[in-house]
């Protein structure tokens, strides 16, 4: 805590189809990080890979943000597995 150096977490998640990576990116990028939460989140997709960059000056905030993101990601992927028609 208290450090002013920027720290970041990079997540890359492969999906079976490019379309699924795009859907996940669209779904997950709607909710913004709290304005004064101290974390920035950038979500993109390239081919079948979902890419997420989280940045903060506090490791603790990064951990909380990454945890929450992964919980949400899991729900999205489970929804695709159960309800996604084969593309």
């Amino acid at each position: 805590m208290g450090s002013t150096t920027e720290q970041s977490v990079l997540l890359e998640v492969s999906f079976p189809y490019a379309r699924y990576a795009e859907i996940a990116a669209n779904t997950l990028s709607v909710d913004k990080e709290p304005r004064r939460g101290g974390v920035s989140k950038i979500i993109s997709h390239e081919g079948n890979v979902l890419k997420v960059v989280l940045q903060s000056t506090e490791a603790r905030l990064l951990r909380v943000s990454a945890n929450s993101f992964l919980e949400h990601l899991r729900l999205v992927t489970e929804t695709m597995e159960k309800f996604g028609p084969p593309v």
């Binding site: 859907i23 996940a24 669209n26 779904t27 729900l75 929804t79 309800f83 996604g84 028609p85």
Partner: peptide, 9 residues
């Protein structure tokens, strides 16, 4: 999150 995902699927 579920609503958004199925809307696209």
């Amino acid at each position: 999150l579920v609503a958004r995902t199925v809307a696209q699927l």
